[in-house]
Amino acid sequence: MTGIWVFGAGILASCGLLAYSMAAIRPDRDTAADRPPVTAANIPGGAPGCAATAKLIPSCGAWWGVAPDVFGGLPPAEALAAAEERMGRKADIVHVYHRGGDAFPTPAERRLARTRLLLVNWKPSLRHTWAEIAAGAVDRRVDRLAASIRRHLQGRFFLTVHHEPENDVRPRPGSGMTADDYAAMYRHVVLRLRAQGVKNAVTVMTYMGAPNWAAKPWFERLYPGDDVVDWIGVDPYADHRVDDFATLIDKVRPDHARWPGFYRWTQTRFPGKPIMVAEWGVFPRQDDHDFKTTFFNSVRRQIRGYPQIKALVYFDSPRAPRGDTRFDPTPAAAHAFTELARAPYFSSTPVPDH
Rank of each mutant, 00 (worst) to 15 (best):
T178V: 02
M185N: 02
F157V: 05
A238Y: 11
K199E: 11
W231C: 11
T203W: 03
R156T: 11
D230M: 04
A238W: 06
P236T: 06
R156E: 09
P260G: 03
N167E: 15
M177G: 08
G176Q: 09
L222V: 07
A215Y: 06
H188C: 05
G197E: 03
D239R: 07
D235G: 05
M208P: 11
L153W: 00
P260S: 02
P211Q: 11
A246Q: 13
L222C: 06
Y237Q: 07
I232S: 11
D168E: 15
M177H: 11
M205K: 05
N200I: 08
W213P: 08
R194N: 02
K251S: 07
D227T: 08
A195N: 05
R221N: 09
Q154Y: 12
Y207W: 15
F157P: 03
P217V: 14
A210P: 06
G233K: 10
T178P: 06
L248W: 00
P260H: 02
D230L: 09
V190Y: 03
I249D: 00
F245M: 10
A257R: 12
Y186H: 04
N200S: 11
K216H: 09
Y263C: 07
L191N: 11
A179T: 10
A215G: 10
A195V: 03
G209Q: 01
R253M: 15
A257H: 06
D181I: 02
W231E: 10
R253W: 15
Y207F: 15
V189C: 01
V161N: 05
H163N: 14
A179C: 06
Y237I: 01
V161L: 08
T160Y: 04
D227S: 09
H256F: 14
P260Q: 04
G155T: 05
F262D: 05
